[in-house]
Design a protein around this nucleic acid. Structure first.
Lengths: 346, 346
DNA sequence: CTTGGGATAGACAGCGTTGTCAGTCCATTT
DNA sequence: AAATGGACTGACAACGCTGTCTATCCCAAG
């Protein structure tokens, strides 16, 4: 059987194709009885609107583009990050009958921006979601902006000219984690910084500072390690930190990979976690639950963030309103087994 | 500036739109000089063909659909698996100027098949890639097949009616791993089976059997654990295995998650890996490199498999030939630190 | 009754490509 | 010089929808 088209449905229902279109698109001003007739015809013929045709007629594809830094271009497998972003976007798309087009891009490639533009102009998605850290790269954002396609940035460092953004409360939640550590009696709480290009990660450092202050603890440069978000950099930083004579009793790493590095070093140095050292991370990657002891961390609402972004895009298209302001989806502390009371001898 | 259309290009180049179309699609029978003129015009106008229009006119979207089991529907994060599949598909798509549409689906949902059909019929992708374990579920494959869209199954248990499939040499490589373990002197090599629905995983068991035989080792039911691919099931199986009086000196788990579970149990039971126990997994998920000691495993060429599948789909569309037969992309042994010589006291 | 106006429905013209088919051109062949 | 046939090009009709605009319906108000 050949695929039914809108004409077939219209004929069977005894109405015009425009009316069928109205029913399909849930437009108002269709009489109840007419709607019924059309719906029966649709069901009978197993009619499915042809996306390509509606895309062409409506001047934009019913597609949301999700743009992120290509995980395969690096050693660090940020698979979990990407999957959760996809998950949220997909959830939003599905609810609105849109599709998701993923577009990892390699920023080390000189022609990323051209390639991005080509992608957008050919496909004409209804909107673009730009994930961190791309959402912080001026030339990427500029390229996307230049196409005129609506976009939403995820966790941008700072907002630019009123474009929509969805972020989490990185700073506040990091302060909260720091206070939690302090509340366990820790006085020497160290922090391992992440890659300076990753803005969210630098905000966590600010939160750490806030938390210290709120808990009446003094900041010391000796308690700060420099990392680059990788497991290995976590190991390196932990090595330095743990070899001080007055070593920290708690280490808060700006992401889980580095925290896992810390745990590995602790293990090798025979430092018991959480008995002698509390370790906390950030992101709640899957590894966090798999290492031993299970890592206390901060769960980023990544999938909700992406979902909100996609919904905003779709909604703004539907209502033809422009995208302004920003939205905050709060993160959550996940307390597991890697943190505990400060050792009595400290 | 409004977007240039094919008409603009045709006018500027002084040819018909059909000729522009020919140039854009690299069709033969265009004079060199004409092609040049057109290409100059395209460059000058920054012309990009409108995908929706070409999709409509050519009766199919320049899109490949990648269908896999929704990782977020489970606790087990198979993010790495999905990402590598996407990576390969994307590589193929990019090379042919196609886009990738991802479509995770939840098999526990009663209406998966309807939902899948709706997806395919609305979007009309040029082809579908069905990842394992969906590629082994008759009702899924049947639903997709019923739409008439070409599809390729990844790592199917058995081929059905000549449809194309891409697989890896699961059985052979598992035999090889088993022989490797035997070559280290291990006599009691245990195996932890995976989820019975995951055919690839059952083939690994066959490979284990082959390897045992090829190494002159006797099979014992006592050395087989039952798992379901999850970390927890690996722990459970290891617990049983390691509490036997004659415990195995090597455990080969049908996937890395379970192998990681084994390592955790060994750690808790103070069994040294690899000193007293060798552990091997399969899949080379990112965790494999992050746990301590780093896991010996089998690296599945997942991204190549997906890439081959996508290329086959695109190629078969281009040449209008049907998809027949199957293809094998070999896996690789990755020897790391979790395996070593059999302990002398064993 | 008549009328005004919102609710409802339809006609029709695109949207920007590709496929089909009918040329035109030009170098060979007869 | 005419005929042949492949290389090249273009006219035109789809493809299946949505947007715009107009026509009709129907009910409450005058």
């Amino acid at each position: 059987m050949p695929k039914a088209t809108i004409d077939d449905v219209a004929e069977l229902a005894g109405v015009s194709i425009k009316t069928v279109s109205r029913v399909v698109n849930r437009e108002p001003n269709v009489r109840e009885t007419t709607r019924d007739k059309v719906e029966k015809a649709i069901a009978k013929l197993h009619y499915r609107p042809n996306q390509s045709a509606r895309n062409l007629a409506s001047q934009h594809a019913h597609l949301i583009g999700l743009i992120y830094d290509d995980p395969s271009a690096y050693e660090i497998p940020s698979a979990g990050y990407v999957i959760r972003l996809q998950e949220g976007s997909l959830r939003a798309c599905k609810s609105a009958n849109y599709e998701l087009l993923i577009h990892p891009c390699n920023i080390r490639n000189k022609q990323v921006t051209d390639e991005l533009k080509a992608f957008i102009e050919q496909v004409r998605p209804a909107g673009i979601i730009i994930a961190a850290p791309l959402s912080n790269m001026a030339k990427i954002v500029r390229a996307i902006s230049s196409t005129g396609t609506p976009y939403v940035r995820l966790s941008p460092g700072q907002s630019n000219g009123g474009q929509y953004a969805v972020r989490t409360n990185d700073r506040e939640i990091s302060a909260q984690m720091t206070r939690y550590l302090a509340s366990l009696g820790h006085k020497r709480v160290a922090f391992i910084k992440g890659h300076p290009d990753h803005k969210a990660v630098t905000r966590r450092f600010d939160g750490y500072l806030d938390g210290l202050e709120q808990s009446g603890l003094r900041f010391s440069q000796n308690l700060v390690g420099e990392g680059d978000n990788s497991f290995g950099s976590g190991e390196a930083a932990a090595n330095k930190l743990l070899k001080r004579k007055k070593r920290p009793t708690a280490i808060f790493a700006a992401n889980d990979d580095m925290a896992a590095g810390v745990m590995r070093v602790a293990d090798r140095l025979n430092v018991d976690v959480p008995g002698q050292l509390s370790v906390a991370g950030c992101d709640d990657i899957s590894l966090a639950q798999q290492i031993f002891p299970r890592l206390t961390t901060i769960r980023q609402p990544l999938s909700s963030i992406a979902e909100r972004a996609a919904l905003a895009l779709i909604e703004s298209y539907r209502t033809r309103s422009s995208l302004k302001g920003s939205e905050v989806v709060p993160a959550k502390l996940v307390i597991r087994d890697s943190t505990g009371p400060v050792p009595s001898d400290a």
